[in-house]
Computed example of a mutant assay.
Amino acid sequence: MTEKTPDVSDAYALDTPKAARQLYAGWAKSYDDSFANARAYLLPDLTARAFAQAGGCGPVLDVGAGTGLCGVALSGLRVTPVDATDISPDMLAQALRKDVYRDVIEADLNVGIPVPRQSYAGVVSSGTFTHGHLGPEVLPAILRVARSGAWFALSVNAAHYEEGGFATAFDRLLRGQWITNLSLPEVRIYGEDAEGAHRNDTALIAVFQKV
């Protein structure tokens, strides 16, 4: 029997870090063709562009980098150097093949990122803050690795933004003067010709600056 290729519904149903590692171990090699190309996955490029347009610069940490699609987009915009972090070593292995990352860091963001404080002048994340993945509770760990003045561009699935408590989290960070200049442009995640149950899903790209 041919093993079923994972899809976005499987990813949205994840409930533990172990399940995430298992899913992406079996999906890593085919991810770009079976998902990103097949669905005209726009989000990595749009996230990278939002970061660059805000004035973001390197060194950048790509959080939940997967196979490196956002890193490729950043490279095309001449934003370098970029490091990648992801929970899946198999996805990071594919990202390395694209030859756009200075380094890769295997990490569970719920535990933390094993790099010194203030290591990065910018942080991006595409497709990681979504159903079955990460919520706003990891924002402090991401802020920790960024320098004062660092720009962020973090895509958040629009439905997950509402149900996951991101509005409250960002409001708390603004009131606490941890971040400033927050904007939330809404974009399509997939191209207009995409098919499937999630073809019309949108994301908010949280663009902000660390104080």
Rank of each mutant, 00 (worst) to 15 (best):
V124A: 12
G149K: 03
I113T: 11
S125Q: 01
V82H: 03
F129G: 11
Y24T: 07
D171F: 01
C57S: 15
C57R: 13
L182Q: 10
P17T: 09
A203F: 02
G55T: 03
L43S: 09
A150S: 14
D15T: 11
V63M: 06
A194V: 08
L46N: 03
G196C: 07
R49V: 11
P136I: 07
R199Y: 00
A167V: 04
G196H: 02
Q94M: 13
A158W: 00
D103S: 14
A48H: 03
G71M: 02
A28S: 13
A54L: 08
L184T: 14
G26K: 07
G127L: 01
R144C: 06
Y31E: 09
P59Y: 05
E137V: 09
D86Y: 01
L61T: 09
Y161F: 14
S75R: 10
F166D: 08
Y24K: 10
I205T: 09
A93T: 11
P89H: 03
L139A: 08
L154V: 10
T80Y: 01
Y24W: 10
P185K: 04
V63I: 15
G56H: 08
S125M: 07
M1S: 15
G64P: 06
S148Y: 01
A65L: 05
V123G: 01
S183D: 07
G191K: 09
A153E: 04
A54T: 06
T85D: 07
A25E: 15
E162F: 00
G165P: 10
A150N: 11
R144I: 01
V72K: 04
A146S: 13
L184A: 07
Q209Y: 01
R21I: 14
V8S: 07
R147M: 13
A65C: 02
T130Q: 02
R188D: 14
T16Q: 05
L174V: 13
I142Q: 01
E106I: 12
S125C: 11
F129T: 10
S155I: 02
V207P: 03
I205Y: 01
R78Y: 06
R78E: 15
C70L: 00
G122M: 04
Y190T: 06
R188C: 12
F170S: 07
L43P: 05
L143G: 13
D171R: 14
D201P: 00
K29R: 15
P6C: 10
G135S: 08
V8Y: 12
R97P: 00
A28I: 06
E192L: 09
A121F: 05
S75Y: 05
V145D: 02
R199S: 13
A150K: 03
T168R: 13
